[in-house]
Simulated assay, not measured.
Amino acid sequence: MAAEPEGAAEGAEAAAVAEEPPEELAHAEVLELFQEALARLVQDPLLCDLPPQVTAEEIGSQVALEYGQAMTVRVCKADGETVPVVVVQNASVLELKKALRRHIQLRQARQGGVQHLSWKYIWRTYHLTFNGEKLADDRKKLREYGIRNRDEVSFIKKLRK
């Protein structure tokens, strides 16, 4: 029998250790670790404007905004409140509507306000407008309407036919 070269036994031990299954954590433990990591992340000056219960989606949007891959569209609601919504640079009207819906849902969940809005009713009752032009085509890109970073779109009530 040939002698094993030096280090072969150590390599076999390392391989055996590498094959051990990783330590399994309970869902609650993983969630806690994730929340702690997010809390550390939002202390970064780039992300300090985000709420404490931030989502990974919100962090991604903020980073995309910083790198110029996204833009903020201010949506002026019928009650006069302005909501900043982050969308990708080449977003369509439909993507803006979805981002607005997500933003409002997250805010409601954090504040404990009204838990359900009928978005079907909202889009049936209101148009989004920019510089007096209705954003009527959901497939059309925001830039085709001339919407750029920090521009403001408004809700306007539809007229009855």
Rank of each mutant, 00 (worst) to 15 (best):
Y126C: 08
K140R: 08
D138A: 07
V42P: 00
E4K: 01
K161M: 06
H103W: 02
T125E: 08
D49K: 02
R40S: 03
A16V: 07
M71C: 06
D79I: 12
V63T: 03
P5C: 04
T82K: 08
A26W: 08
V87Q: 05
E152Y: 10
E95H: 07
K157D: 06
L100I: 09
R124L: 11
A109G: 02
D49H: 04
V88F: 00
Q35Y: 12
D151N: 09
G80S: 00
G7I: 00
Q115E: 14
L142H: 09
K97S: 01
K141S: 15
W119V: 12
L50T: 10
E20C: 01
E66K: 11
R74K: 10
D151E: 07
V30G: 01
E81S: 12
T129F: 06
E144A: 12
R102E: 15
L31Q: 14
E66V: 10
A56H: 04
T125W: 08
E95Q: 13
A8W: 04
P51I: 14
T72S: 15
V63F: 00
I122F: 09
V153N: 01
V42E: 02
S61M: 15
L100F: 08
P45L: 03
W123D: 09
L117E: 03
W123N: 07
G68W: 10
L159S: 15
G113T: 13
E144G: 04
V83P: 13
K158N: 13
H127A: 05
E36F: 00
L159D: 13
Q108C: 15
L142K: 05
E29D: 04
E32T: 07
A9H: 11
E6C: 05
A26H: 01
V73K: 06
S92R: 01
L94G: 14
Q43D: 07
K161L: 04
H127S: 11
Q89N: 10
K134M: 13
D79R: 04
L96K: 05
D49T: 11
V17W: 04
C48F: 06
I122E: 04
H27N: 01
K157H: 05
Q53G: 03
R143C: 02
V63H: 03
V75W: 13
E6D: 12
Q89P: 01
S154W: 04
A18L: 01
R101S: 14
E57Y: 08
L65S: 13
A9P: 09
P21A: 07
R143I: 06
K98R: 10
L117K: 14
H27V: 15
L25P: 00
D151L: 00
A14F: 00
F130E: 11
E144Q: 12
Q43E: 06
K161V: 12
A15T: 04
H103A: 11
A91N: 02
Q111W: 06
F130W: 08
T129S: 13
R102Q: 13
L38N: 10
L47G: 00
L106V: 13
M1W: 06
A15P: 01
I122C: 11
A14S: 07
E133V: 14
H127Y: 14
V63I: 05
P45S: 02
G11M: 05
D44A: 10
M71G: 02
L159N: 11
K157R: 15
G11A: 13
V42A: 02
K134W: 03
A136W: 00
Q69A: 14
G132H: 14
P5A: 09
K120Y: 00
L65T: 01
G113M: 06
G60K: 04
L100C: 02
L159H: 03
R40M: 12
A56S: 09
W119N: 06
C48Y: 02
